[in-house]
């Protein structure tokens, strides 16, 4: 089994205990702090990253399970912070405290990767694992739709 993991296109040696969740490898070992700790139990979505393009909860994903995989964090979602979702988040002034937003954006990016024109119900189903206590849900919905619209224009 590979003993490395690719994070944001760069390969890193896994040099921590097998059962350490990916979240803490990112935050404490590599100091990628954009991925947040919220609940530690996969209940809130603040730690959402992509594994081979699909959203996962980094707080419950042992590092051993991502060996040989490719991980994308908020820091690596786009080269210049210009992913359509990031732009839509800025245009709609989505964040309040902003703490959950990396997880929200990563989860939404995973949604749009498989569903380019999500309905309200699709967004609800895909995004209900991501909690925002400040209450930015209305703007999150709006931003996802506007990003989907922009993506559709690019195709």
């Amino acid at each position: 089994m590979a003993n490395t993991v690719v994070i944001n296109s760069k390969e890193y040696a896994i040099d921590v205990a097998d059962d350490m969740p990916l979240l803490w490898f990112l935050r404490d070992r590599l100091e990628f702090t954009g991925t947040k700790f919220g609940c530690g139990s996969g209940l809130c979505g603040a730690c959402t990253v992509h594994m081979d393009g699909t959203a996962i909860r980094a707080c419950v994903m042992p590092i051993s399970a991502v060996a040989g995989k490719s991980i994308t964090t908020i820091e690596g979602l786009s080269e210049n912070g210009d992913h359509p979702l990031q732009k839509a988040w800025v245009e709609n002034n989505v964040p309040q405290c902003g703490y959950c937003q990396a997880g929200q954006i990563m989860n939404a990016a995973s949604l749009l990767a498989t569903n380019t024109s999500p309905s309200d119900d699709d967004i609800d189903a895909a995004m209900q694992g991501n909690i925002c206590r400040c209450g930015t849900y209305q703007r999150i919905k709006k931003a996802i739709k506007s990003a989907a619209f922009e993506l559709a224009k690019e195709v």
Partner: peptide, 11 residues
């Protein structure tokens, strides 16, 4: 907001 959307905002 730009710091938030790129994961650079420090808490």
């Amino acid at each position: 907001v730009g710091l938030v959307t790129t994961g650079q905002r420090m808490y």
